[in-house]
C-alpha cells in the first residue's frame, strides 16, 4: 500500500514539474500571442497586463501590409519546398549509392561528402560564395536561394543508415523478379522507408524556412526577400517598436514550421531518431 502511495505521489510531483517546464518553455510564444492582440495604446501600459482588453486583429493586417508579408511567405515557401525536395531526393540517391553499391573510390567520396558537414559554405564562405552567385548572375533570384543547398550530407547519411537496415535478401529477391537497381529503389526501398524519408523531409523544410544569413545577402529587392528577413524589416519599419505588430508578424512567420512540426511530429521523431540511434 505504501509503495503505491509513493508511486502516486511521485507521479503527481512529476506532473507538476512537467507542467511548470512546459509552461516556461512555451511562455515566449504565449506572451507573443497575447501581445499580438493588443492595441498600440495597450502595448506600453504600465504595469503591463498580460491579456488584451479585446481581440485587436489590426496588428496582423498591419504586419501583413507593412512588409509585403504575402510575397515574403510565398518566397519562403518556394525556397523551402525546392530545397526540401532537392535535398531529400538527391540524398536518397546518394544514400542508396553508398549503402547498396560497392564501387571504386566509395570511401574517398564518402569522406569528401562527410567533410562538407563541417563546411557550411553559406556561412563560413559567404564572401566567395556570393562572388560565385555574382558571376552566375544569380543575385536576387530563386536560383541563389535554392541551388547551393540542394546537396545534403546529413540526408545522405540518414538514408544510408536506413537503407542498410533493409535485409539484403530483399534486393536479391527483387533482382530475381527482374527489377533493376532503380526499380528496387523506387518500388521497394522508398516505400519501405516512408517514415524516415518523411522525417528527413520535415527537417529539411524547417531548415530551409529558417535560413537567415544567406537570404539576407543574396536578395535585395522586396519581392525576393524571405519571411525571416521580414522580421528584420518589421523591426526596422515599425519605427517605434510597436511590439503588437512585430509579434503578429513573428507569429505569422513562425506558424508554418510550428504547425508542420506538430502535425507530423510522430513521423519526425520516430523516423529520424530511431533510424539514427538504433542499430
Amino acid at each position: 500500500m505504501k509503495r503505491r502511495q509513493r508511486k502516486i505521489l511521485r507521479t503527481i510531483i512529476v506532473e507538476i514539474a512537467l507542467i511548470i517546464v512546459t509552461f516556461v518553455i512555451l511562455m515566449p510564444i504565449f506572451l507573443a500571442l497575447t501581445m499580438s492582440f493588443k492595441t498600440p495604446g495597450e502595448v506600453f501600459t504600465y504595469p503591463p497586463k498580460i491579456f488584451p482588453s479585446k481581440f485587436y486583429f489590426e496588428n496582423y493586417i498591419k504586419a501583413f501590409q507593412s512588409v509585403n508579408m504575402g510575397r515574403l511567405m510565398l518566397n519562403s515557401t518556394i525556397m523551402a519546398l525546392v530545397i526540401m525536395l532537392g535535398k531529400t531526393i538527391f540524398g536518397i540517391f546518394s544514400g542508396y549509392a553508398f549503402s547498396n553499391f560497392k564501387f571504386k573510390g566509395s570511401s574517398l567520396l564518402f569522406a569528401i561528402l562527410f567533410i562538407t558537414l563541417f563546411m557550411p559554405a553559406e556561412m563560413i564562405m559567404i564572401v566567395p560564395l556570393f562572388q560565385v552567385m555574382k558571376s552566375l548572375h544569380w543575385i536576387n533570384t530563386y536560383w541563389a536561394l535554392t541551388v547551393p543547398f540542394l546537396a545534403s550530407a546529413t540526408t545522405t547519411f540518414l538514408m544510408r543508415q536506413h537503407f542498410m537496415t533493409v535485409p539484403k535478401e530483399l534486393e536479391d529477391a527483387a533482382r530475381i523478379d527482374g527489377a533493376g537497381p532503380f526499380g528496387f529503389l523506387f518500388k521497394i526501398l522508398v516505400p519501405l522507408s516512408k517514415s524516415t524519408i518523411g522525417g528527413v523531409a520535415v527537417i529539411n523544410f524547417v531548415y530551409a524556412w529558417n535560413l537567415y544569413l544567406w537570404p539576407l545577402i543574396v536578395t535585395n529587392s522586396d519581392n525576393m526577400k524571405t519571411a525571416q528577413i521580414g522580421l528584420r524589416m518589421l523591426m526596422n519599419v515599425e519605427s517605434a517598436n510597436d511590439w503588437g505588430v512585430i509579434m503578429a508578424g513573428t507569429l505569422m512567420i513562425l506558424a508554418p514550421t510550428l504547425l508542420l512540426f506538430f502535425a507530423v511530429q510522430k513521423l519526425f521523431v520516430q523516423g529520424i531518431i530511431t533510424t539514427g540511434l538504433k542499430e
Partner: peptide, 12 residues
Amino acid sequence: QYTGSYNDTLNK
C-alpha cells in the same frame, strides 16, 4: 525600384 536599406541598395 525599392531595393531595401541603404546597405542593401549599395550591395545590389
